[in-house]
């Protein structure tokens, strides 16, 4: 009796130990990555990082053009992707709840969600870059939009489904057509959820390298021309980190730290909004 209990206790302790170990390994990896990033990147953090252009090898400079390019293309990408993603998510959640078409869309969307981003880059390269004859910020933004869309579709559908059916029924029973119910009742009720989805999509998009490599490429100089190649943090990091020049490598570390901090900040904000959700939404 006691023996059996001891064996069971031992089994429990082993299972607990193993899962704890796994957790620690995961956390240690993350910690090591962050530590390396901070240790290597922090020394390069300076005002000139935000005020100067990417330098030629051996010169001094910053990342201003890359930061600007990343911001512009992420924002532009979201401007293209968010409306499509939100409307498609609305269709899935409100109009085509159980229809066959919806399950096909949902499946395709999941495929797109997990598609390697380099394929998106190649696709936009074929469709836009080749036809336009040159790399451009617009092509970059389109590639980012294609990555953002499935994220937005998914989060929008999930968030709209959280809105209690009773609330939608009440609006319908008052004689509102579906579109009125969606815009006047469902969107306001799911607003913070949709904003969270937007932030997460931005976070996802702003770290993407592969799709930009084939579309926006890079630019050593300050450029506001959307129809020309544009610098951006991920590609700059990619190129500078692979270079043999010490100062370029330092800039790559600093850029990596910047981008990580930005994504971390976005995720934290998104989490804060999510944790505030139940109070914001009435059940």
């Amino acid at each position: 009796m006691t023996r059996r209990r001891q064996v069971r206790k031992l089994g429990n302790a082993v299972a607990l130990g193993l899962s704890l170990l796994a957790t620690l390994i995961g956390l240690a990896c993350l910690g090591a990555i962050l530590w390396t990033l901070v240790a290597r990147g922090i020394s390069g953090l300076s005002v000139q990082l935000f005020t100067q252009m990417t330098p030629p090898p051996g010169g001094t400079g910053g990342l201003l053009n890359a930061i600007y390019g990343s911001l512009v293309m992420s924002v532009l990408g979201m401007f293209i992707g968010a409306p499509i993603g939100i409307l498609a998510g609305t269709y899935l959640a409100e109009y085509g709840r159980d229809a066959r078409l919806s399950s096909v869309i949902r499946f395709v969307n999941d495929v797109l969600l997990s598609a390697p981003s380099i394929i998106v880059g190649l696709f936009v390269y074929e469709v836009l870059v080749v036809r336009m004859g040159h790399f451009s910020a617009i092509a970059g933004a389109v590639a980012l939009a294609i990555i953002a869309i499935p994220v937005m579709v998914r989060t929008t559908e999930d968030m709209l489904r959280l809105v209690p059916q009773g609330m939608k029924d009440a609006s319908t029973a008052l004689g509102a057509y579906p579109w009125r119910t969606i815009t006047s009742i469902v969107y306001p009720a799911a607003r913070s959820g949709i904003v969270t989805g937007l932030l997460l999509a931005v976070a996802r998009v702003s770290g993407e390298t592969a799709p930009l490599l084939f579309t926006a490429l890079n630019n050593q100089f300050w450029s506001k021309d959307l129809n020309a190649p544009m610098a951006n943090l991920p590609v700059v990091i990619f190129q500078f980190a692979l270079s043999p020049y010490k100062d370029w490598q330092q800039l790559a570390w600093s850029g990596a730290l910047l981008i990580t901090l930005a994504i971390l900040l976005l995720s934290v904000i998104a989490r804060l909004i999510i944790s505030a959700l139940p109070g914001g939404r009435s059940q």
């Binding site: 209690p164 029924d169 009440a170 609006s171 029973a173 008052l174 009742i185 306001p188 009720a189």
Partner: peptide
């Protein structure tokens, strides 16, 4: 023809 439901369901307004 108006309708009142089982669970009170005011809008979040």
């Amino acid at each position: 023809v108006g309708m009142v439901f089982q669970k009170p369901n005011p809008f979040p307004k």
